[in-house]
Design a protein around this nucleic acid. Structure first.
Length: 518
RNA sequence: GCAGCCGUAGCUCAGUUGGUUAGAGCACCAGAUUGUGGAUCUGGGGGUCCCCCGUUCGAGCCGGGGCGGCUGUACCA
């Protein structure tokens, strides 16, 4: 068979293999998140990867675009199934299905893989991991405020320092109110509202000028591609931009005051800035009942986070947060990293949000007659892992486990004896293995080196006659290597190597391990 | 999806106006050293020059189409 006939070995686009280092990092992250969520009183639950497509709330795949956005397939009873694309819709299904058996409010967390059939990018995959926590059955904004505080606590547990991230809060009702104030209420303006919301969402990326273009005629990007704008009249543009401006203008004051005193803004100053933003928003949406509801909710959340001591810049009111257009009904939150991340070529990477969530009062209600309010937060574990790896955070580059002790095979006819040594080590709880390849001693040493073995066990005929084994400390030996120039010297010195009688094998290996790993 | 740039060994890349058998460094394997990781030296394996079609006596190089990658943009539950 010629090489051309061979199948090319490659993972599918947007799907990634995970190395031992990835696995270790992910485990540590999941443990930290779980600890944080449990501290807040949430309990674990798990749902399957696959759900009925209609449970997920997506339209059934059609002939032309059978898998738009989600991976779907038909069961043998003709029912459409889909791989879940987030953990919220499956939770809503679970709660609805087990409604009577669950305590209300129901507070649970879950971690797992989700799948999206869309264009992958750096830190963006078609299979990725999320870690969610939700409170179902409570309409109180205390539930929303609490989840934002928990998000902040959790990111800190993951090794992010204060100031490295920010939890931004907005409210969909406020956005609706602003759209109404801009004269975009009513059925006929549905399309324009969508464009405006998308434009608002891009404030951090495109700036005020970019958003203004999208609100008016449209915007041409650097590649020459054109995005059609919302064609709003001057007054509507003014309202929207004034709304977004509150996010920036009110923040400036505490910073100016702070810089005069030479200190970071105090919690009180941060809180006043939040309240000032809310006041300005209120003046804009005063005519909208729904908008005023949202303003009132924001005010309560701001008070809660201030009372709990989180109004130190970790959690902020930010009018530019939109989140998805589908199911959020009230407060929405987004966790963003504030530090710059660079890829291995030194180019800046934009990570966007590493978590987010909000209130989705209608989602469980799709399955049941009574309304069931709910709110939740999701951490994008895979994306956050990519970001943490790029900045070499300790939690992802934590100490790797040492490899196994390798027992070398010097004489093929002595395999049974070598195997017995391996068993002895394992029974003593020492990670060990027999060299299972077919190469000579030099290759076996290289193998042990690559496996990060702390030491190897050597017994050739000389040692066997004396009833001894040689232990070679590879870590100590590597240190000694630098001082040795010639190969003759290297071979003669046999650095970091010593002999013990066979019955002292475990003891000697333990000594070497203790030397390096305490 | 749309646009721009890119595609030569496992990796990073050379490759002249289109002209013998396509190269280097790193990595890998082996020997020097029949029992020792590193360093050094020597040798070796590894390529459909992304694919297809075309132009040409002749294509890694020119043209068209496709696929893949990167960047921006759109969508994003």
């Amino acid at each position: 068979m010629s090489k051309a006939d061979k199948i090319k070995a490659r993972a599918p686009r947007g799907f990634a293999d995970r190395t031992p280092a990835d696995l270790g990092a992910t485990e540590r992250m999941l443990a930290a998140i779980r600890e944080s969520y449990e501290l807040y009183g949430f309990e674990g639950v798990e749902t399957p990867f696959v759900e009925y497509t209609d449970s997920l709330g997506k339209f059934l795949p059609d002939q032309d675009r059978p898998n738009e956005g989600v991976f779907s397939f038909q069961d043998d009873d003709e029912q459409w199934l889909s791989l879940r694309y987030d953990l919220t819709a499956p939770l809503a299904r679970y709660v609805a299905e087990n409604f009577d058996a669950l305590p209300k409010p129901y507070r649970s967390y879950r971690a797992g893989w989700v799948f999206r059939n869309e264009k992958p990018g750096p830190g963006r995959f078609r299979q990725f991991m999320q870690f969610d926590a939700d409170t179902v059955g409570s309409g109180s904004v205390a539930a929303d405020a609490e989840i934002c505080m928990m998000a902040a606590d959790t990111l800190e547990k993951l090794g992010l320092k204060r100031g490295d991230f920010i939890i931004k809060i907005n409210n969909r009702k406020v956005l609706d109110g602003v759209l109404e104030a801009a004269g975009l209420g009513g059925e006929e303006n549905e399309a324009k509202r969508l464009i405006v919301l998308r434009a608002i969402d891009k404030l951090d990326r495109l700036g005020v000028d970019g958003v203004r273009l999208l609100l008016s005629g449209g915007r041409r990007d650097e590649s020459g591609d054109f995005t059609k704008g919302a064609e709003l009249d001057a007054n509507a543009q003014r309202v929207i931009l004034a709304f977004l401006g509150t996010g920036m203008d009110e923040r400036v004051l505490p910073f100016e005051e702070a810089s005069q005193s030479g200190q970071a803004p105090t919690q009180e100053q941060e809180h006043q800035a939040n309240l000032a933003i809310i006041d300005t928003i209120q003046s804009l949406v005063a005519q909208s009942r729904r908008g005023m509801e949202g303003v009132e909710e924001l005010r309560q959340i701001a008070d809660s986070i201030h009372a709990a001591g989180y109004s130190d810049g970790r959690i902020r009111i930010d009018p530019s947060v939109v989140r998805g257009l589908e199911y959020y009904t009230g407060p929405v939150y987004e966790a963003e990293l504030t530090f710059q991340v660079q890829d291995e070529d030194g180019r800046p990477v934009r990570f966007g949000s590493v978590g987010g969530g909000g209130r989705y009062d209608g989602l469980v209600g799709r399955f049941r007659t009574e309304p069931v309010p709910a709110t939740g937060f999701s951490i994008g574990v895979s994306r956050l892992l990519s970001a943490l790896q790029m900045v070499k955070s300790p939690i992802v580059s934590g100490a790797e486990k040492p490899g196994p002790v390798v027992v070398l095979v010097m004489d093929r006819d002595q395999i049974a004896a070598y195997q017995r040594m391996v068993s002895t080590l394992r029974q003593a709880g020492i990670r060990a293995e027999l060299y299972l390849g077919s190469s000579g001693m030099k290759a076996q040493m290289k193998y042990a080196d690559r496996r990060q073995s702390p030491c190897v066990v050597i017994q050739g005929s000389n040692e066997r006659e004396r009833g001894e084994v040689e232990i070679k400390d590879l870590i100590e030996g590597a240190k000694a290597a630098g001082a040795i120039a010639s190969n003759e010297e290297w071979k003669a010195a046999r650095p970091a190597q010593f002999s013990v009688t066979e019955d002292k094998l475990v003891e000697a290996v333990r000594e070497v391990l203790a030397r390096h790993f305490g």
